[in-house]
């Protein structure tokens, strides 16, 4: 279980994380809804160890990991844009985390091959990142992050820059892989539908404060999340259509 307690972070006088506390049980996905500038990127980077918190503790399985450097945390941060290493092939990008851990060559080959199959990228294995489409790049970034089974995935609006169709395909792929590998993840998004589709648990973030909901229903009922507004919109359209039909 990932447990965060009273994380506080300010840049000079500007408070970015205001005593954030949250728990994510192993194998579950916490969807965090928030608009840009709410502090979600800072939250994820703090968890990944890329930014030191001013106060508060981060625990994994009951042990504090505040002092553990990013490379030993096994919490992979996925940037908004798929940041692939431009000089490495798709294969080597995916293999990166294994190579870093000095995994034997035979194992690297078999693991990467099966990941490529999983991502439907077999025929692109030897291509360089600049020869791929946006969706393909995001898939590679994904595969690269989960291949060595890290403790936690930290996803920062990973599908925000994709077109609607690719986006929905990626959401399905993420769900399938998350179930298959039992991934624990914090998934930050500004899209209500995406949050509902992907999360096991739900949270809402605004101005550095994070609200955790007991259930999906509680999340949907809170006017701040905008779920009700969205529902009302679709209802009114449906209503219009049915009245026009008459």
């Amino acid at each position: 279980m990932l447990s965060i307690q009273h994380i506080h972070k300010a840049f000079q006088l500007h408070t970015v994380l205001d005593h954030v506390s949250v728990e994510v049980p192993e194998g579950q996905v916490l969807a965090v809804l928030g608009r840009s500038g709410c502090g979600k990127t800072t939250l994820l980077k703090t968890l990944a160890g890329l930014l030191p918190p001013d106060a508060g503790s981060i625990k994994w399985a009951g042990e504090s990991i505040n002092e553990v450097p990013p490379r030993e945390r096994e919490m992979v941060y996925l940037f908004q844009e798929p940041l692939l290493f431009p000089h490495l092939s798709v294969f080597e990008n995916i293999a990166y985390g294994l190579r870093v851990r000095k995994t034997p060559e035979a194992e690297v080959q078999s693991k990467v091959q099966s990941m490529l199959r999983e991502l439907e990228l077999q025929e692109h294995a030897q291509k360089k990142p600049d020869q791929l489409s946006g969706g393909q790049r995001q898939r590679v970034a994904f595969g690269r992050a989960i291949i060595f089974l890290p403790r936690v995935l930290l996803l920062d609006e990973p599908f925000a820059s994709l077109d609607a169709q690719t986006r929905s395909a990626m959401q399905k792929l993420f769900l399938r892989l998350a179930r298959k590998y039992g991934i624990t993840a914090l998934f930050v998004t500004h899209d209500v539908k995406e949050a509902l589709l992907i999360g096991d648990r739900f949270a809402y973030m605004a101005a550095g404060k994070l609200t955790l909901y007991r259930s999906k229903e509680a999340f949907m009922d809170d006017p701040a999340t905008g779920v009700q507004e969205e529902l009302a919109f679709w209802n009114s359209i449906e209503h219009n259509i049915s009245t026009n039909d008459k």
């Binding site: 840049f11 000079q12 500038g37 990127t41 980077k45 160890g49 890329l50 930014l51 030191p52 450097p69």
Partner: peptide
């Protein structure tokens, strides 16, 4: 803001 974060990120070492 992002620049600030970069600066702070290096303070760890």
């Amino acid at each position: 803001m992002m620049i600030l974060e970069h600066r702070l990120s290096t303070k760890t070492k």
